[in-house]
């Protein structure tokens, strides 16, 4: 593996975690719910995946366990924010802190050990023989293909090419208008918040069964927050989220490379890089004055019908 190929491969692997988490968050935000609990969902997913594979040695079971855990935690969050209309910001914080704490407690037996199973590499025939790119792009595990190709392709089609997607986007923009034309605002919001939470937890499963691969307390390392920032930075569009995730993955991979090759940059600074880049990219659209990111107009606002 050449340096370039290794760098790219590394960027894809670490970017896949952000891409999956970001795409999950996208679903919630598109229907108007700001879920700040991604970090907690990822921790829960990461821990439950490791726990599930420790008995079964099957990564698929680990993924299913993470999705189910995410959906359960997401249902709780959706009940609080969509049905009971509690503050989305506070509930998100609670989900992050509660999720991380619960994962740390329940994950203690597995902490620090290598995961019992990891995702196998799934080379794409022929394409994997391409020089440089073949190794980097087409010798990856299934979740990487899902994160960078299958899921964004599907979500873009769903959101922008189907009647259902029009409804989803409209609910995030103006739930009162949707209600007036007879759409079921609250059930749709609930469903997509839960689905998004499951996907975000799935990102945690890839973290501990693919990228790291082991569980320890704090393994998510703020990636959930980066995913939230990524969604805003990407203007709530699936392909741009994935592209942004790749960029962050690249920055992270560069840090590892610099450390391995001893470029003389303090490792603490290299470790900071992704977070610094996050700050930079959040400021960029505002500083350049153009591309003011159009958030869904009703993002973060609970919907009441029977109230003037």
């Amino acid at each position: 593996m050449s340096v370039v190929s290794g760098l790219l491969s590394n960027a894809l692997v670490s970017g896949a975690v952000l891409a999956l988490a970001g795409l999950g968050e996208l679903l919630a935000e598109r229907v108007g719910v700001l879920n700040l609990g991604v970090e907690g969902l990822m921790a829960l997913g990461a821990m439950s995946a490791v726990a599930a594979v420790s008995g079964t040695h099957d990564p698929a079971v680990g993924v299913l366990a993470a999705l189910a855990t995410g959906a359960a935690a997401g249902s709780l969050f959706a009940f609080a924010t969509v049905v009971a209309r509690a503050s989305q910001v506070l509930c998100g914080m609670a989900l992050t802190m509660g999720g991380m704490g619960l994962a740390a407690t329940l994950g203690r037996p597995f902490a620090g050990q290598p995961s019992a199973a990891t995702f196998p590499v799934l080379p794409i025939p022929l394409l994997d023989r391409l020089p440089v790119l073949g190794d980097a792009l087409f010798r990856q595990s299934l979740p990487v293909y899902v994160a960078f190709l299958i899921l964004p392709l599907f979500l873009h089609w769903l959101l922008f090419r189907t009647r259902h997607g029009l409804a989803l986007r409209a609910i995030g923009e103006n739930p009162a208008a949707c209600d007036a034309v007879g759409m079921k605002v609250l059930p749709l919001r609930f469903a997509y918040v839960v689905l998004g939470a499951a996907i975000s937890a799935g990102a945690g499963a890839y973290l501990t069964l693919g990228f790291v691969p082991s569980w320890s307390d704090g393994v998510t390392a703020g990636r959930g927050w980066i995913a939230v920032a990524l969604v805003i930075f990407a203007g709530y569009r699936p392909w741009r989220i994935v592209a942004g995730a790749l960029l962050f993955g690249f920055v992270g991979a560069l840090g590892y490379l610099a450390q391995a090759r001893d470029w003389g940059i303090p490792s603490a600074f290299l470790g900071m890089l992704p977070y610094l880049v996050t700050l930079l990219f959040m400021m960029l659209p505002a500083l350049t004055g153009r591309g003011r990111v159009a958030a869904p107009a009703a993002l973060g606002v609970a919907y009441y019908r029977d109230q003037r």
């Binding site: 009647r163 409209a170 923009e173 009162a176 949707c178 759409m183 107009a297």
Partner: peptide, 20 residues
Amino acid sequence: KLVPAFTVAENIHLGWNETP
């Protein structure tokens, strides 16, 4: 009760079961 960010056509077809 319209979605300002959407086009006229999208608003007309919003939540309508005859929308393709």
